[in-house]
Design a protein around this nucleic acid. Structure first.
Length: 530
RNA sequence: GAGCGCGUAGCUCAGUCGGUAGAGCAACUGACUUUUAAUCAGUAGGUCAUGGGUUCGAAUCCCAUCGCGCUCACCA
């Protein structure tokens, strides 16, 4: 086992590089005084969970697992921290009861009634969504609420520390702000006792002994408030720094848009006497055209889109690959990523331990990937679903068992799941593109002939025998100068596409009786698309 | 302006601590006395953006240049 640990010291996969940096540079090889290593991921207030949320937790977990292999004696924890004390700045478009929420603008999310009517507050609602999302992937984490930390007094010491170091913190912050904002900036945002809103107002006096500040209220009056007990929250960069200080966060990732914020928060954290966490800034995702993905634009892919057509492991692989390179995230990458996942899975058993630690599936499955199965790729499955009318998983399985003898849903559970994804893909992308046409008079004659011949075949005829029948029927109808036109007609009329599978194989698996029925429907002028 | 990333085959990209350039798709050739391709065999295509440096050896490490893109300068 210690061998594996040695290998982990040399593994080049990025989670190991990160974990080594954390252990050697930040921790100097020792468990921190608090007794465990703390990983953190943060969530903004507007935030319904999205694909970046998944990426951040998945990647942080990969570093955490790598760390655990490197330093098995040091416990680790992962906090998922929700900024639910933040004031709501604007009403999201995607919620009900917007008028009601509008009346509460500026209040902490946890002080706004839940527009969905299901939870104690809007903040609680979003928190529940976040947790449900993370739980659906089986992530191991501990949820934390900013409101909770502030109002319970657990942030008191942090807020007092900011008060004690007010001037140097202001010196760091002010040069980064525009002239106008400099006039009103303070790291403290009081929560107004009258309106309940989070105020961005100037602080005119500070009393370190008493632990209070005096601020100029929106109505012009001066109000003295303690910085403790949740009466103030901190402006976000100071908030971030204070949280690192109080919790002792050791590792936190963030998008590259937060690089300047991270640097600023780090300086504040040091002023307070803390050590900022080790940070990895990952690249943002781009859409097909290389534009930044944003929820408001609606470009790019949502997690739900991905998970409709591919398993979460493939999404985890996407997150594992090159976190520091801007990656295009659009539909076409899904099948490719699934197949890369399958390839890595296939290679894993034959690899030695050193190679295994660099294999993405080690990181996706925490060192214990499932057994590889049939070697059948997802792209093949998708093609198969497209050509064989696969609205039913059973139809697809018929084809698969011919292609991979012995494969069953029980012996190949991964493939079995992929079958469902392929069927979903077929229904959503292939089927709508199908254009069935009615047969011409000549084609109708030939089809009628074919139906009769097929019906006359002995039950259990094999694909070759059926193929011969199809071929001969086509040959004896002079309407088809080339046989190619006959097959083309079959595809267009029966399958609604200009290409298709070898008809003999298709009919054998789809069923002779079913095919005859399909032909009869076409002859009757029914719409096969229904 | 500051920061970050990218530049490898026609297209999309791999390339795991430096050791003779790879995959998928596309293209081309041939095979299966049956269209088709989830078939098989084979072919072609790259001065690894450019110029230097380190090295016995560089797509890989360092520096510079060019090109493309993103992020941040108000808020979180």
């Amino acid at each position: 086992m210690s061998d594996l640990r040695d290998l982990a010291r040399n593994a080049s996969a990025w989670p190991f590089q990160e974990a080594r940096g954390l252990l050697d540079e930040r921790l100097k090889g020792q468990a921190p005084a608090k007794g465990f290593v703390l990983f953190e991921t943060g969530y903004g207030p507007s935030g319904l969970p999205h694909i970046g949320t998944f990426g951040e937790v998945a990647r942080t977990t990969m570093v955490r697992r790598a760390f655990e292999l490197l330093a098995p004696g040091i416990p680790t924890r992962l906090f998922a921290f929700s900024d639910d004390r933040d004031g709501l700045r604007k009403v999201p478009d995607n919620i009900p009861n917007k008028e009601m929420v509008t009346q509460h603008l500026g209040k902490p999310l946890t002080a706004i009634p839940d527009p969905f009517g299901t939870h104690e507050s809007f903040g609680h609602h979003n928190n529940a969504r976040l947790r449900g999302f993370l739980d659906s992937f089986g992530f191991e984490y501990e949820f934390q609420s900013a409101t909770d930390w502030y109002t319970s007094g657990r942030f008191d010491e942090g807020c007092l520390q900011v008060l004690r170091h007010y001037d140097p913190i202001m010196e760091v912050m002010l040069p980064t702000l525009g002239e106008e904002r400099q006039q009103t900036y303070s790291p403290f945002l009081p929560v107004c006792p009258k309106t309940g809103k989070v105020l961005q107002v100037p602080v005119v006096e500070r009393n370190v002994e008493a632990g209070t500040i005096v601020y100029k209220d929106e109505d012009g009056s001066f109000v003295e408030a303690p910085v403790t007990g949740g009466r103030v929250k901190l402006q976000w960069k100071a908030d971030w720094a204070m949280r690192w200080f109080v919790l002792g966060v050791d590792y936190e990732m963030s998008g590259k848009d937060l690089i300047p914020s991270y640097q600023l928060a780090s300086r504040i954290c040091r002023i307070m006497g803390g050590t900022p966490p080790m940070n990895l800034s990952y690249e943002l995702f781009l859409d097909e055209k290389g534009q930044k993905i944003s929820k408001s634009k609606g470009n790019g892919l949502a997690v739900e889109d991905w998970l409709c057509y591919a398993p979460p492991e493939s999404l985890a692989l996407f997150m594992f690959q090159k976190p520091k390179a801007a990656k295009r995230l659009y539909f076409d990458v899904i099948p490719r990523t699934v197949d890369e996942y399958l390839t890595f899975l296939d290679k894993f058993p034959a690899e030695d331990d050193a190679k295994r630690l660099n294999n993405p599936v080690w990181h996706i499955h925490h060192g214990k990937p499932p057994q590889p199965e049939t070697g059948l790729s997802y792209n093949i499955l998708l093609n198969l679903a497209s050509v064989c009318h696969a609205e039913d998983r059973a139809v697809l399985w018929h084809f698969i068992s011919r292609y991979v003898p012995g494969a069953t849903p029980v012996s190949a559970p991964i493939l079995d799941r992929l079958v469902d994804y392929a069927v979903a893909y077929y229904k959503d992308f292939v089927k709508p593109g199908k254009r069935y046409r009615l047969p011409t008079a000549d084609e109708a004659k030939a089809l009628s002939d074919l139906a009769a011949e097929l019906a006359a075949l002995p039950a259990g005829s094999d694909a070759e025998a059926i193929q011969t029948v199809v071929y001969e029927v086509g040959k004896r109808h002079p309407a088809f100068a080339e046989l190619k036109a006959w097959f083309q007609a079959l595809y267009e009329i029966l399958l609604g596409q200009d290409q298709g599978p070898r008809m003999g194989s298709f009919i054998a698996l789809y069923g002779i009786g079913e095919t005859v029925a399909l032909i009869r429907r076409a002859l009757a002028g029914e719409d096969l698309a229904v």
